[in-house]
Amino acid sequence: MRDAEIVASFLARDEQAIREAESKYGAFCRALARNILKRPEDAEEIANDALLAAWQSIPPKTPNNLKTFLGRIVRDKALTRYRALKAQKRGAGSLELLTELEDCVPSPAGVEELAEANELTGFINEWLDMLSKEDAALFVKRYWYGESADELAKKLGCSPLKLSQRLYALRKKLKAFLERKGVLI
């Protein structure tokens, strides 16, 4: 079933929508949760929670793109789970992605404005639009899809070390861009 039809089923409150969404995107949701949390035991549950959350939020929401809509819910649930585990000090470790993202946090010296999350997203979109297609895709694959540097290195046919250096350079570029924008988070 196509996304549009699954969304229509959600809107029509037809429970078949959840089954169709699970059949089409369940594996994607589990993989995304696994990529981010690195805890396979949580992936199944986060994916199920995401489908339930979709059921509860459509309507009133009507997502343009069901896959990215579910992906955002999974990311959100994964972060919540990470925080809960961290608060309980129960082996959450540190979230690799968050550690890397520290590099992007700007420290502007000029005009400083506390950016709301959606404003910050706007700046990141703007920055991604300025990058080469491959660099933008690399950033998204690592920090949205949570794919590991090793996997990405294989896809691009380079060494993991070279890939890590490239990602580091991208994080620094983003930081510099946000600083130029006077963003404070």
């Binding site: 343009n64 793109n65 896959k67 990215t68 992906g71 955002r72 990311r75 959100d76 972060l79 992605l97 968050l98 550690t99 993202l101 520290e102 992007c104 946090v105 999350a117 959606n118 910050l120 997203t121 990141i124 979109n125 991604l128 639009d129 297609k133 933008a136 895709a137 690399l138 998204v140 694959k141 920090y143 949205w144 899809y145 988070i185």
Partner: peptide
């Protein structure tokens, strides 16, 4: 701050995510 960055990245535009 890194969590805020993570959340902002969640909202990246659909077309950019798809093309990746």
């Amino acid at each position: 701050n890194s969590e805020k960055m993570y959340e902002a990245i969640s909202g990246i535009r659909d077309d950019i995510i798809e093309s990746a």
